[in-house]
């Protein structure tokens, strides 16, 4: 029997989870929107960021909120290296090869992590992890609240960057028409490099915050990659608002289905949502009308 209290709790945790999903998905949607490459290894970079956050705490006692300022530059650097080392070469290849490259990268990173860190579950046990905020009859854990807040701030910041800066305008131009942007004298290489730098860099914020609410292990990223796909495609490519909406929907649906059915069925819900979204609105939930 699902009481109102349980339902309210499901809504609150669903929205909080959704905000965290959005935090993972914005980077993916940025990269996909600009470069038209699906990065199957996105979740593995999240996994790296979570390990980085964990070790910053375990070895140097740095609070996850502060670790963001160390881990984010690190992840941005990884993004640049990823572009120059691998993705740049893959751009000219057919879609299937691009898929193979990022899938291979995902397998590679997961198993390198497995060799280095073993399969153990690690967690940053913070004192504040047990504290909660009461929202009506429902409770929200403090670390989750912090992550959700960070997610909203990050999305707002990215949106402003894309709207207001020259760099943002260039990026949107490339996302809309690669050829048109080139004709206007925009260097694709630089835009792509920055897109990956920022897209992967956002995970530097997510990782440390998540490491205090979720166990870190080599396979933690794969879980998020699939959900982030669902969100990015449902929300529309490169559409931040759509990603946020999609993420909240996925989080809510999962959490409410979890209250009614088993966890396993709840896990299937995002994928069912994806199929509905793709068939119903292939261009994304809140896509603008495009005249041809």
């Amino acid at each position: 029997m699902v009481t109102f209290d349980i339902f309210a709790q499901a809504v609150v945790s669903g929205l909080a989870n959704g905000a965290i999903y959005a935090l993972v998905a914005v980077g993916l949607t940025l990269v996909f929107g600009v470069m038209r490459i699906i990065n199957f290894a996105h979740g593995e970079f999240l996994m790296i960021a979570m390990y980085a956050g964990y070790f910053a705490w375990a070895l140097a006692g740095i609070d996850p909120v502060l670790a963001i300022f160390i881990v984010t530059p690190l992840l941005m650097l990884i993004g640049v290296l990823l572009y120059d080392g691998i993705i740049r070469r893959a751009l000219a290849a057919p879609e299937i090869n691009q898929m193979a490259v990022t899938l291979g990268l995902s397998l590679l990173l997961q198993n390198l992590a497995l060799m280095t860190f073993k399969g153990d579950n690690l967690l940053i046990p913070l004192a504040r992890a047990t504290e909660s905020i009461a929202i009506g009859p429902a409770l929200l854990q403090l670390p989750q609240a912090i992550a959700a807040l960070a997610s909203l701030l990050l999305i707002a910041a990215l949106w402003l960057v894309l709207r207001l800066t020259d760099f943002g305008i260039m990026m949107r131009a490339v996302a809309q028409s690669r050829d048109g942007a080139v004709l206007c004298g925009i260097g694709l290489g630089a835009v792509y490099r920055w897109a990956l730098c920022i897209g992967i860099g956002t995970l530097g914020i997510t990782g440390p915050l998540l490491a205090s609410t979720l166990y870190v292990n080599p396979h933690v990223g794969a879980l998020f990659t699939l959900k982030a796909f669902v969100i990015v495609i449902a929300g529309g490519l490169g559409n931040f608002g759509g990603a946020l909406l999609g993420a909240l929907l996925v989080g809510l649906a999962e959490s409410i289905a979890g209250a009614w059915f088993s966890a396993s069925i709840a896990a299937a819900v995002p994928f069912a949502l994806l199929i509905v979204a793709m068939l119903w609105r292939p261009e994304g939930l809140i896509a603008r009308r495009v005249a041809r």
Binding site: E95, L226, S262, A268, F271, I275, M278
Partner: peptide, 26 residues
Amino acid sequence: RYGLKGYYFGIATLAFSEIAFFLVSA
């Protein structure tokens, strides 16, 4: 019918198999 191609077809098929995975797991 809905014109899903390339990546989109890939992800859609992936979604169907994941649904089956979780439903069978339950």
